[in-house]
Nucleic acid binder design. Structure first.
Length: 711
DNA sequence: CTAGGGTTAG
């Protein structure tokens, strides 16, 4: 059959070029209906060959011989759409004198399903102006265009017209499209009102409602809707299950999650890809990542969404290295990553501060043309910020076309971590002009920036404004940041007053105050804070250590010994300080006085030489940072073997290229003596060193540090 | 001849 059609078309092409006059003569003698039939069958063939060229040939003939009219014209438009050319269909559509409602609908829905919402709405509006009444088919697709473009008022107006025409609730297709639109606008009340009025509710309508509640964060209500749907005897399908499993995941509700899992199996939807993907996500969200891995293994051909879901789940569960391994495997299998995938992989790199791996993924972002994507962009800004490359973060940020509040927050946070307080403030102040509304994260980031740069006045001002406006809900994190800011700058009374302002001050707040007390040798307040900490968290290890530090810094050794024996009784073990450095994708870890590295002897030689050199430039070991009651010489020796000094010596030993920046990481805060030592090292070695400690970055260059010695 | 809902992200 198809072969015959093919040859008929070829015959037509032949006629076109060679025997037009003959064809013309024979056609003119035929009746119109027969001509119509002939053309109809040719259009049918176009549908089979899916070739726009064929449509063109048929159309040329029809125009030439004057046979183009309503019925055939519609068929041609339909054929063009099926051949994948909306623009060609539109040309025909515009040329046609009388357009059938079906053709308006076909054109509009084609535009919208091909992500051309603007054109779809344009045609919808022209249709209304031309006096053609939209029908249930028109409404069931046009609302999506309004939600795609965020045109809430226009969408409401169209909703109004559907009410006038009596189509709003009499047709469930229109009803569910409306529910979906209002849900996407976040107006769940309107969505609910429409859905309540729809006469014959079906599973699609309920699913739209469930997804709406779930995506607006009202997961409890989503579960309610699911329950009432089941009670009404409407059966869930794969779409519904996929959505409700995500709801259970959002709630981290394993009980209901497993219950739904059972229902999925009973209903026979378990093999559906969406159900599987949602199951994987649900278990990952509930912390059962091994179950997710097991589900993943069952996929014969995981698609990019499945891979991404797995990667996201792994990162969420702190399995970044496995996440990156899976990501590489996915790339090997030639699955094309999208911006979801890449931003998740980048997040894994950020968490591990793996700059090299991150750079490679950045290259992929560029390769796939996603440099200006807001999600990939924010993830890149985050990566470079977390790896201490503020300049790179900024250049990615500047390349973004649409800056949203999240990418803005990432950039401000990058500045904050790296001690660029003024730059962070400048960006924060520019938000108003850009029409961006700061949120909780913005405020926290900018306060952190002030904190890390000692901008006490500015931080207090922002905090006061936010407190007065009450538009942003301040969390304990915000207060902790302010307590740190005030406390470290010596305004301890104000800091303590702020802690007391918080409704239920937690351990973190009191501990922050405690460390400020340590910094300023404020023994009495420190004891008060410790008592509070122990009230809230009996036997808290950190606060014991901090109190030891307070006593040690004021030379109160008998108290130090007292606490230490208490800690021994409670079987405390101090979290050991650790530094590491990434050389050629291999992580080298060092503890204080660590001799376990295979090149330990050379490392120590390098270190000894460095210490001699920096001493000549004026480095004096600062033994105040040794919290043991040793004699001065021993204190000095113990300083020399701090983990960060070992890591830097190793890095200098193995990398001779002066232009390579040395990056080291430490799990605790960098010690004061090491901080000053590293500044000298940058001078004697002419190297740049970036150190990330538990709290922030320190960029050491030419004998100075970006933190301005305030951290 | 034309129609509605789902699974991955900071």
């Amino acid at each position: 059959m198809t072969v015959r059609r093919r040859s008929q078309l070829n015959h037509l092409k032949y006629l076109t070029s060679t025997a037009q006059s003959c064809f013309d003569a024979s056609f003119k003698n035929t009746r119109l209906t027969e001509a119509s039939q002939f053309y109809s069958s040719l259009v049918q063939q176009c549908l089979h060959t899916r070739s726009l060229l064929d449509v063109g040939i048929v159309q040329t003939h029809m125009i030439k011989f004057g046979y183009i009219h309503l019925h055939i014209g519609n068929k041609l438009i339909d054929a063009s759409l099926k051949c994948g050319s909306i623009s060609y269909a539109r040309k025909l559509f515009d040329e046609l004198p009388n357009r059938h409602i079906v053709m308006w609908n076909s054109m509009i829905s084609s535009y919208i399903s091909h992500k051309k919402s603007k054109e779809g709405i344009g045609l919808y509006e022209r249709m209304v102006l031309d006096g053609v009444y939209p029908d249930e088919y028109t409404f069931s697709c046009v609302f999506k265009a309004f939600s795609n473009l965020g045109l809430i008022n226009e969408g409401r107006r169209a909703h109004g017209l559907s009410v006038v025409l009596g189509l709003e609730v009499s047709n469930v297709f229109v009803g569910s499209a409306l529910v979906d639109m209002y849900a996407k606008f976040g107006r769940m009340k309107d969505a609910r009102l429409v859905s309540n009025r729809v006469v014959d509710k079906d599973v699609v309508l309920f699913t739209a409602l469930i997804v709406g509640y779930s995506q607006q964060g009202d997961n409890g209500e989503a579960l309610e809707v699911f329950g009432s749907m089941i009670n009404q005897g409407i059966k869930a399908n794969a779409y519904t299950f996929a959505s409700i499993l995500i709801t259970c995941g959002n709630l981290e509700d394993l009980t209901n999650g497993k219950l739904v899992h059972g229902l999925v199996i009973k209903s026979g939807y378990e093999p559906a890809v969406a159900s599987q993907t949602s199951l994987l996500t649900m278990y990952a969200r509930c912390g059962l990542i091994d179950d997710s891995l097991r589900i993943f293994k069952r996929f014969p051909n995981p698609n990019h969404v499945t891979w991404t879901s797995l990667i996201v789940g792994l990162v969420r569960n702190g399995r970044e290295e496995l996440a990156l391994k899976k990501f590489r495997k996915m790339i090997c299998k030639s699955i094309v990553p999208n911006s979801f995938t890449l931003s998740s992989a980048l997040q894994a790199c950020s968490n591990l501060a793996m700059i090299d791996e991150g750079r490679q993924i950045h290259a992929m972002v560029t390769k796939f043309g996603l440099d200006r994507d807001v999600y990939a962009g924010a993830a890149l800004v985050n990566l470079y910020g977390k790896c201490g490359s503020t300049e790179m973060a900024r250049s990615v940020f500047d390349a973004l076309i649409d800056i949203d509040v999240v990418s803005m927050n990432s950039m401000i946070y990058s500045y904050a971590q790296n001690g660029f307080g003024h730059e962070a403030l400048e960006l924060f102040n520019s938000m108003k002009e850009l029409g961006l509304e700061p949120n909780e994260v913005t405020i926290l980031s900018v306060l952190l920036a002030c904190n890390n740069s000692g901008l006490v006045h500015e931080g207090c001002q922002i905090f006061a404004t936010i407190t007065n406006n009450q538009t942003i809900e301040l969390t304990r994190d915000h207060y902790a940041c302010m307590v740190d800011l005030l406390g470290r700058s010596g305004r301890l009374e104000e800091a303590e007053a702020l802690v007391k302002q918080v409704r239920n001050p937690d351990v973190v707040l009191w501990r922050t105050l405690l460390s400020a007390c340590k910094l300023h040798g404020e023994v009495e307040m420190a004891e008060r804070a410790v008592n509070k900490v122990l009230e809230l968290a009996p036997g808290d290890e950190g606060s014991h250590i901090l109190l030891t530090n307070v006593y040690a810094s004021t030379g109160n050794w008998s108290q130090v010994i007292g606490i230490k024996s208490t800690m021994r009784d409670l079987k405390f073990k101090k979290n050991p300080a650790m530094s590491w450095v990434d050389v050629d994708r291999e992580v080298h870890t060092f503890m204080a006085g660590d001799l376990s590295h295979r090149r330990s002897r050379e490392i120590n030689e390098t270190l000894e030489k460095l210490i001699e050199k920096v001493k000549l430039l004026g480095y004096v070991p600062d033994t105040r940072f040794v919290l043991q009651d040793l004699d001065e010489e021993l204190k000095k020796r113990s300083l020399y073997y701090h983990s960060e000094k070992l890591a830097i010596s190793f890095a200098l030993l193995v990398s001779s290229n002066k232009n390579t920046i040395i990056r080291i990481f430490k799990n605790l805060r960098v010690c004061g003596d090491c901080h000053s030592w590293i500044k000298f090292v940058t001078k004697v070695s002419s190297r740049e060193i970036i150190a990330r400690d538990a709290k922030r970055f320190h960029h050491f260059k030419d004998g100075l540090c970006s933190c301005g010695d305030y951290w």
